[in-house]
Design a protein around this nucleic acid. Structure first.
Lengths: 231, 231
DNA sequence: CCGTAGAGGATTGTTCAACGATCCCTCAAT
DNA sequence: ATTGAGGGATCGTTGAACAATCCTCTACGG
């Protein structure tokens, strides 16, 4: 009986997931991720609320959810805008990634580790690369690092990084040169995975640090060219 | 001229800070932090909205802000409650702290470091301890670790930890044995500070890790006794 | 005495309309 | 070219209304 009650408690999370605002935020989030609403776009309460058929209050709650995820910025009496990352934002994102991701690897216990998620993300990236779908390679890349963070088994850490990765996608979208942005890292992800499979945390951490340093440099370089003067 | 414009731009953040919902959430946040609303308290829309003189919609928006910060939990058709952390929450908080705080220390560059903030927090703790104000000792303790995280100079990391420390305060309120909870760590903070002043990152990291492990053990032990059976 | 079903009151969930405040754009004047 | 005033649009906040849900108290039957 206790078992069944426990199972029910697990299902409860799915049950409570029927909030209009959450569904609206899901829609907007994917629209932003796919570039339908590019960075800088203003999201009007009236037009979007009208188009989706929800009240302003509900829409505003959805905006707040996304603002909290840093995908939107809220300006008083002006409305919400799709975030435009500054170069400093990108640098801080990578600073956070380096701090947390390396710490996760360093903090792993004794091998073997549960690396199925990582291996799956690597496979996902290889498949997408074979088909020349570089945007999906970028997504797979993010999945790889999300799985990496998941190894820490910490809900709060995972949530922080989920938000950081969502932000990073904004930067990728501005850059919009997916192949040269993502292709070089497929092999490096494989190397990290193999180091972990071999139980060599130290090597994995070193590879990861180098990876992030190089990636930052490349993203910033292209990003600075692209973002020009608007802030 | 360009200098002055830059300074003004910095002040702009302070200017735009006026939203009723945000101000309400600020008030509630500090009330929760100081224990005026202990964990488990239900926050009625009617009474609080009436007392603060704001409408239900505005108040609900403030509730949402605090819910996103994990300080409140929302139960459908029952209202919002000050969060009651589970033992698993406390463990995850310390897991995150250990991961991030140790990584910050490890990631410091070459000494000397800007340790004024840390020294100030240590002084704050000593003063409070001398006056027997153990709750303030706990606050100073949190300040110490917040300053420690600030050494990473990462906005995102700092924000994550700010939220984590706010949660931690919830646990302290449940325990409510401030002296034995906070006193032992004054000396350990001093030791960490001195290690950093001496430029010995590795020693500081070791001290910090031991600190966090001991603190977790103590908090969980007392917490488990206190929290009993209510969920 | 105990447990259960049901009625009633209280609280929350959601939407809507309205009004003041703020911002942005336009245009005229210096 | 810069400044200032006006008008339109949008946001911020409030208040009210109604449905849905929860909690408490009562009454009934075993």
């Amino acid at each position: 009986m206790a078992e069944q009650l426990k199972d029910l408690a697990d299902d409860r999370a799915l049950l409570g997931r029927t909030s209009t605002a959450e569904r609206v935020s899901d829609i907007l989030r994917s629209r932003i991720a796919e570039g339908y609403f590019p960075p800088g776009t203003r999201l009007s309460e009236d037009s979007i609320g009208g188009a989706l058929g929800v009240s302003r209050n509900t829409l505003r709650e959805a905006f707040r959810l996304l603002t909290h995820e840093r995908l939107l910025v809220h300006e008083l009496n002006r409305g919400v805008f799709v975030r435009v990352l500054t170069v400093e934002d990108v640098e801080d994102i990578y600073r956070t990634r380096r701090l947390v991701e390396c710490a996760v690897v360093r903090g792993l216990g004794e091998p073997p580790y549960g690396l199925d998620g990582l291996a799956g993300a690597v496979q996902e990236g290889r498949t997408a690369a074979r088909e020349g779908d570089w945007k999906s390679v970028g997504t797979a890349n993010i999945h790889f690092h999300r799985e990496l963070v998941a190894l820490a088994a910490s809900e709060r850490t995972a949530e922080l990084m989920r938000s950081v990765f969502a932000e990073l996608r904004l930067a990728f979208h501005v850059v919009d040169e997916p192949q040269q942005l993502h292709e070089p890292y497929i092999a490096r992800n494989v190397a990290i995975l193999e180091a972990l499979q071999g139980g060599d945390r130290e090597k994995a951490e070193g590879l990861l640090a180098g990876y992030l340093d190089d990636s930052l440099e490349r993203v910033v370089e292209v990003y600075r060219r692209r973002v020009g003067e608007d802030g």
